[in-house]
Simulated assay, not measured.
Amino acid sequence: MPLRGIVPPLVTPLLDNDTLDVEGLERLIEHIIGGGAAALFLLGTTGEFASLSYKIREELVQLSCRFVAGRVPVLVGISDSAFTESLNLAHKAAQYGADAVVITPPYYFSSGQPELLEYLKRIMKAMPLPLFIYNMPVHTKVMFTPETVRAAAEIPGIIGMKDSSANLAYFNQVQYLLKDRPDFTFMVGPEEITAEFVMMGGHGGVNGGANMFPKLYVDLYKAAAAHDMPKVLELRDKAMQISTTIYNVGKYGSSYLKGLKCALSVMGICSDFMAEPFHRFNEPERKIIEAALEKLDYKSLL
């Protein structure tokens, strides 16, 4: 069966640019597992992977696998511009007990679709774990086309996909091409469309908000999978309240992550330190986040 449910893309709790907030990491993992998450995804976009040293990435994987202790699957992002570094981290992830890895198209140089497919075939020859492909065109500037996804699903060891394009037409195209592959996991990133995605046959969500409120997103997934529309509408309203308040403090694209980390800090879960080039919110923005959490009655969502 494919992986199903909510897979939070873990934030990376930091004390400074090269020091993990280890106590915060353990609290965050316990909080997420306690909320019913199906798995954890380390070193994704929400985990600030591209801003972290290789030392910190490896330490995060090692500690997270130790804290999870086999209770749920652990997925590790190995995206990099360097083929060798992706493989190095994949082998470290396997060594520490991770269950699968996740990769975007290599960034900086733009790959054509035939080049991207050849890249996947080559890297899978040395891959020690099953792999999910990760469609994140806003950051990588390259998209896995539906046809490439279909071809990738035939490569041994590639078992699923996370799509963060926020494009339901794209989802329909991919799903149509994979209709004979019910074993291939297909998950969506943006939580604003997770319910619709699941009701259309998707397998779940890789939702950043599940760092804060895992139970909310797990319940939303379950309601969508059961086509319980009154419950979906009720819970999606809460998810949209989070999206339009906590993620929209400030003017820039970093506001989502700053708001998420700030909220986790206000909730007493982990530090809100941001890896360079970003900085955590200052006191005025923090007060806005505090007010948004109070308006959410956030303790009732835990």
Rank of each mutant, 00 (worst) to 15 (best):
I242W: 15
F213L: 01
N248M: 03
M200D: 04
G201R: 12
T245G: 03
G205N: 08
V198H: 08
I246H: 02
L293C: 06
K261N: 02
E191Q: 06
H203T: 06
A226Y: 02
D228L: 06
H203F: 11
N207K: 02
M187N: 01
A223H: 00
G204Y: 06
E283V: 09
T245C: 08
E294A: 13
H227E: 14
Y252M: 11
M199A: 01
R236W: 08
G201D: 15
P277G: 04
A292R: 06
V249Q: 01
E290I: 14
E285Q: 15
A210K: 11
M274H: 11
N282M: 11
F278Q: 05
I269S: 04
D237Y: 12
A291H: 14
M200I: 02
I242V: 14
I246D: 06
A239K: 05
E191G: 12
T244R: 14
L233N: 12
E290K: 15
Q241D: 13
A275W: 10
P284S: 10
A225R: 15
E290C: 12
G208A: 15
P190M: 08
E290H: 09
A224V: 04
F186H: 12
E285L: 08
A226W: 05
G259I: 00
P190G: 01
G259M: 01
A224D: 06
E283I: 08
A275H: 10
K215M: 01
P230E: 07
V232T: 11
Q241Y: 13
G268Y: 03
E283F: 09
C262T: 15
M200P: 03
L293H: 09
P214H: 12
K251A: 12
R280Y: 04
M240I: 09
C262Y: 00
K222N: 11
G209N: 10
A263K: 03
F278I: 00
N282H: 14
E234N: 06
C262R: 00
H279Q: 15
Y221E: 05
G204T: 01
L293E: 06
S254A: 14
